[in-house]
Amino acid sequence: MPAITSIAGRGLPLRGDDLDTDRIMPARFLRAVTFEGLENHVFEDDKKDNPNHPFNDAKYKGAAILVVNSNFGCGSSREHAPQGLARYGIQAIVGESFSEIFLGNSAVLGIPCFTAEKTAIEHLQAAIEKSPDLVIEADVANGVVSAGTLGIEATVPSGLRDAFVTDQWNPTAMLLADFDKVRAIAKGLPYVSGF
């Protein structure tokens, strides 16, 4: 598992607040025992509804950095949403704010979610819309997202930032590293020992 210090790639601006995980990945695509193929269904209903949806737009094809507005990924805890985005090729998301569950689900897949000021996000979205080929660089370690001459302050929550740059963003091994302590805590809990 490599450290993730910075991500570079083209951007995909997706405007709108409160885009929930039912929109990102409608429930009918959760009818499966694997995550395979979810990349084909990201924003499926929104894409059908709107031919100009950014995920339909050829000029954003191959983008690695998704730029969204506020409360992205609210609603259902389904990891199918970030799994679909990851498989689609998204490696980092920059937005005004994220739901906590979505942010955590993305982190364990190695996708950092950067938060930035509303106006900074709007500038970034506008810059990408103007020049879709612009290479965006999202720097986890330093909390900066740059696009050509535009540089905005954009940060990943500190615990996760450290986890990304020190290559500990997939926590299972860490959680198992000191298992005796887990057992000790369990033993000390009255409800585990039967009161």
Partner: peptide
């Protein structure tokens, strides 16, 4: 806490979660 599938894996494996 509501969690995602990778965290379900973590709880199965370690009965614990990494949280802020």
């Amino acid at each position: 806490f509501g969690i995602g599938t990778s965290q379900v894996r973590d709880v199965l494996a370690s009965q614990s979660l990494a949280l802020d």
